[in-house]
Write a protein that binds this DNA or RNA. Structure first.
Lengths: 247, 247
DNA sequence: CGACTCTTTGATCCTGATCAACACCGGTGG
DNA sequence: CCACCGGTGTTGATCAGGATCAAAGAGTCG
């Protein structure tokens, strides 16, 4: 609950006409609106901007009606599910351009929460408009399906039964790879989430996260900072996590 | 490897005109072709039947080009991924009517295998025809998206960090619930997969699977048989796995 | 029947969780 | 400016859930 101190927020939603994708640093690689720039331009017309949200603020909460898909525009966010006993599970961390809330389509409402990690802005794709688009533009439809397929594919990796060290290394390498796709630096990985969040996501105790980072530090693989790490030996890190990667 | 003894098979593919969905016991509840019977009839025209495959035979293997989506028609199947070190991971078990291979859409090829558990028949939906359908029939498109969303949603459950006993109970209850949807008996659950498969899927050693089943037996929750279990107290089972269920 | 595989049960071990204590940082107010 | 304070991160000591090792029982198929 440490990062969820903010009360229910109704963040400002501005129309895209003010802030189109043309000014977005990730427009070219955005999984939500990007890819073929000309062909998918329909998406750019329906996108809205949400935010700015600050650390710990909610984009949406469980039991909220499903109205739109989202992507991070800048910053970072986490998806958190809460089970019947109140235990939280960090399902994913989202980087700019990565589409989420796809799981809510079949339910009609969100059954998990999305919370900003640090100052974060979002792109919002109203679903009714999206449905109109997909019926008229087959490539938008195809693109969405592609994205959903990718998500089904990716999730399978996180289920595996691998030692803690390998899961940790794979997690960091995966983050690095996703940043590469976005054209961001990979010698330094910001980790705006808490150690508890990382541990929860990887099924590890926070103490174990600390210890593993310390172990990687002692092996000269990384330099540990409070809100991130500096990658000294990405190859070595990838080697440790290789079994979990690229499937 | 015990259940993968069969050599590469080229199972007979018959056209649907011979064996339409009208004769299928699961037509009404089939997640692939069913739901609205009249509206989605387009799917019925493109479906082909594959099989009969026997225990351990492959429907497809990794690195096979992606040409179609599949569903189980009768019997049961498992999806198995193999990582770079050769270790296998059982990603899912498939019951009749459940669509799979959705993860291959984004890759263009299958990166895991589907293997029959006992005598099993499959429905095959050629993807090029499916794409044609979705462009002309919005409800087919919507249906597919719905199914993919559901799969994204479901998978998140299997990632959680819960004690072995809860995972096992949740697994059995989940199987039971899925059978309920299909209108099948739930007082007896066939388990045509090996204990090793179950354990792999749940991140448990086969010995632990055995011990947990024995524990449930001693608690009068189930009666253990070789290829399945008899459910004596489904409520009790659900109670143990409640944290993992229904999210 | 006999060879083989799968399952069950028991004994021991080990990875990572839990418990505990301390260090660090950021903010607040004296 | 520094003392204080609460939240977060690190490190050490102990514990336990489930893995692994080992061996015997139960189907299955020749």
């Amino acid at each position: 609950m440490y990062a969820a101190h903010a009360p229910e927020t109704r963040p400002a939603t501005r129309n895209a006409h003010n802030t189109g994708c043309s000014g977005c640093a990730h427009a070219a690689t955005c999984q939500a609106g990007g890819y073929g720039e000309a062909t998918l331009s329909g998406l750019r017309d329906i996108v809205e901007r949400v935010g700015l949200l600050r650390d710990g603020e909610y984009l949406y909460r469980p039991r909220t009606p499903f109205r739109a898909l989202y992507a991070v525009q800048s910053g970072m966010a986490k998806t958190v599910a809460v089970d019947s006993s109140g235990r939280e599970q960090v399902l994913a961390f989202h980087l700019p351009g990565e589409l989420f809330a796809l799981d809510a389509i079949c339910l009609g409402h969100h059954d998990n929460a999305v919370i900003a990690l640090g100052r974060t802005q979002f792109c919002r794709f109203p679903f009714d408009r999206l449905r109109c688009l997909t019926t008229t533009q087959p490539d938008v439809q195809w693109h969405l399906m592609h994205t959903m397929s990718r998500q089904i594919h990716q999730q399978r990796l996180s289920g595996g039964d691998y030692p803690a060290e390998e899961r940790m290394a794979a997690f960091l390498t995966n983050l690095s790879d996703r940043r590469t796709l976005l054209g961001l630096r990979t010698d330094h990985l910001p980790l705006p989430m808490s150690r508890a969040d990382i541990g929860n996501h990887l099924r590890l105790a926070t103490e174990t996260v600390s210890r593993l980072l310390a172990r990687f530090r002692d092996a000269r693989l990384i330099r540990v900072e409070r809100q991130g790490i500096e990658v000294l030996n990405g190859k070595g890190l990838r080697e440790i996590g290789r079994h979990l990667l690229q499937a």
